[in-house]
Write a protein that binds this DNA or RNA. Structure first.
Lengths: 145, 145
DNA sequence: CTTAAAGCATAGTAAAATAGTATGAATAGA
DNA sequence: TCTATTCATACTATTTTACTATGCTTTAAG
């Protein structure tokens, strides 16, 4: 009963983006801050990008930033993008077909509770300190944000 | 984010024992009822046995039965025996060491919620119909129960 | 206008976990 | 004594995970 490193790394990466929101941050920077393989992070960000939860700028001095403000992004969204839907197991027992399966009830209930818990945590809840505003002029921002 | 088949099969097996409680049921019988590999079920029952959540009788016409009454066994117990403790991920980020790690909070909270949910479901909650009392004389019972 | 640094995309791969099988011993009822 | 059962360990094929490798595209800086 474990989440994969994709969810773990992805969440940590999103937290680092939240701290710098709305400024751009490159995979190289995130990789160094969080000690996560840059190439692996690239794969994670391809998923986050195609789910439209982050925006990107290509080319030199490019990077990523959140597509929404930190209070409007939930941990549930991030985990679902990276781990897939939290679905109850398919049960092969005969009972299951006439929807009387006992154990299935457990997995349905559990999936609901997990989703509820994760959907209730906002990215902004995970940022410990307010962002420093001192070096803002050095930071890169997307035109659209 | 999935439970293994061990938890799934183990739970279904425990439900079938609950339905027949306190009578003995062999792995062969459970295997046929639930369409689960008998050899795989054996491994599952070795764990359940050593956790003392089931009782067994060896030899011909032997089998298993619950060690406690169905209302006194929770799904949480069963899952923990078969999947191990539901522990939050270890996080390798630098922040994590000074216990300020943002993402760790998520996994701690989630583990607690999963445990709470599963501990709150009793085996007796999963038995759809009351047991038939008609053929009781054919059934095998442990001396101690 | 060239180049370096970034994102984007797919393919490959080593290690670990999963979901079983196989083999055989110990036990006990018929 | 035979057979059906639990008990225990070892083996194995498949799948998943957690990466790495390769190479293309894009774009700001020099």
């Amino acid at each position: 009963m474990k989440f994969s490193t994709k969810a773990e790394y992805g969440l940590r990466a999103m937290v680092t983006l939240a701290k710098d929101y709305p400024y751009l941050k490159s995979i190289t920077e995130i990789s160094q801050e969080e000690h996560i393989s840059a190439k692996y992070l690239e794969q994670i960000f391809i998923k986050l990008k195609s789910a439209k939860i982050v925006l990107s700028q290509k080319g030199k001095s490019g990077g990523y930033t959140l597509a929404k403000e930190p209070p409007n992004i939930t941990v549930g969204e991030i985990v679902e993008i990276l781990e897939g839907k939290i679905e109850p197991k398919k049960c092969l027992s005969a009972e299951c077909k006439n929807s009387q399966c006992a154990s299935k009830k457990v997995w349905v209930k559990l999936s609901q509770e997990i989703k509820k818990t994760l959907d209730n945590i906002k990215l902004s809840d995970l940022i410990p300190d307010p962002p420093l505003l001192s070096k803002e002029k050095d930071k890169r921002k997307l035109e659209s944000v």
